[in-house]
Simulated assay, not measured.
Amino acid sequence: MSVAPLWDELTERLLPVFTTYRSHLADLPVEVKADTTLLTEADVAVQRIIVDAIRATEPDAAIIAEEDERQGPREEVARAGGRVWVIDPIDGTAEFVQEKRVEFCSVVCLLEDWQPVSAFVLAPELGSGGTPLVVTGDARGRRLTLDGATVEPPSDPREDRWLSATRSAGAPPRDFDRAAEETGFLLKTRTTSQTLDMVRAAIDLSGRTAPSLPPFELFWRRRQKVWDGIAGLCLGTAAGLRHCAEDGEPLPLTPSFFSQAEPVFASTVMGRPDVISWFLGTPH
């Protein structure tokens, strides 16, 4: 099954929905979930569109979606044989509900044999002038696209070398922060969309966004929920990046992990192999 028609359908169906909700933010109720993340009617509506589109072509699809409110084990995922869809309807809801912010996106990732193989990221207003950007990744074919055109991952390191390593607002600098700055890295520490930070590790978006967003040489998060990271891992694989836990061990891409009610990576690190090697040798 080719996923390209599904990605096209989702782009066509979701953009008007985002436009409608973003034009009425003042009237949009915002809930705070138990984990302190935000939930709006838009998250639920976008998730429903994505799930319906997947089930129209794959009625028995095993789906993990952020807003599905699962409490117990996902037995249908355990029985899926490794073919699973993961959905984050709006990654970066805290950005979405603020009129001037644009770092939010819809995310879909297809797993086969428990590995991320195809990813779709729609950022409705991230492009210059508030235009949409669509990123897709084919991990097996090592292909990345931006707005339908094949793109290459960032090549040689830039003079301004950025890492995505967020921390809680108001938290003091970490030993890692000091080590990174001493090595010459610049740090992004404010949390926005985790997926979009991973996109920027796989693709150079500078020049396509306003203000210009530089690429990251490394992405690091603790306690990352699967819907916030699995598409980014797919894009990273397509870009030839390395990913692992912060101790260097492989991530648990297993049936038991994905079958949890809320699969969460203890830590996620993704980037160029040489930068990962540097990271593993620093205090963190």
Rank of each mutant, 00 (worst) to 15 (best):
P5V: 13
K188Y: 13
L163I: 15
P263A: 05
G137F: 04
T192Q: 06
D43M: 01
R79C: 07
P73T: 01
E217S: 11
F96E: 08
S2R: 14
P172R: 06
I54N: 12
V107F: 03
L163N: 04
R223Q: 15
G141V: 03
A53M: 07
S259E: 02
A171K: 08
V84P: 04
R200Q: 11
L15W: 14
D8R: 15
R83K: 13
G240I: 11
R272P: 08
T20V: 13
D113A: 15
V30G: 03
F185Y: 15
T254I: 06
V264Q: 13
V151D: 06
R223K: 15
R272E: 10
P214Y: 01
T37Y: 00
V107N: 11
A4C: 05
I87R: 04
H243A: 02
G281C: 06
E181V: 10
V32D: 02
E58R: 14
H24Q: 15
S118P: 06
L38G: 07
G72A: 13
V269N: 01
M270F: 11
F216I: 04
T268D: 00
D35M: 04
L163T: 12
L218M: 13
G232L: 06
L14S: 05
I276W: 07
L10R: 07
S106Y: 04
R190D: 15
L187C: 10
T209A: 01
G130S: 04
A65T: 09
T209C: 01
H243C: 08
R158D: 13
D274K: 10
L253E: 12
V226R: 00
T145C: 14
F96S: 09
S168Y: 14
A80S: 15
V102G: 06
L38M: 09
E125G: 04
S259N: 01
A238V: 03
A202G: 04
E58S: 14
V117P: 11
S259L: 04
R79D: 14
I64N: 03
S118R: 15
G184E: 10
P116R: 10
Q194M: 11
L280Q: 02
S164K: 11
A266R: 15
L251E: 01
D138Q: 09
G281Q: 05
L280F: 05
G271Y: 10
V134A: 11
L196G: 00
F104W: 02
S206R: 07
T237R: 14
A62C: 06
E246T: 10
C234N: 01
A239P: 04
F185D: 08
E66I: 02
L110G: 09
G232I: 03
F265V: 00
P73S: 08
R208N: 10
A34H: 11
T20M: 14
Q47N: 09
E99K: 13
T189C: 09
P250G: 08
R143A: 13
V264I: 14
V121A: 05
R140I: 10
L28W: 10
V117G: 01
E217C: 08
G81Y: 08
A80T: 06
P132V: 00
A61C: 07
P173D: 03
T131F: 08
W114P: 09
G184F: 06
D35R: 05
P73C: 04
A210G: 10
G229W: 05
T19R: 15
V3A: 12
G170D: 05
I203L: 13
P59W: 03
V121Y: 05
T93Y: 00
P154A: 00
H284V: 12
W227Q: 07
R167P: 12
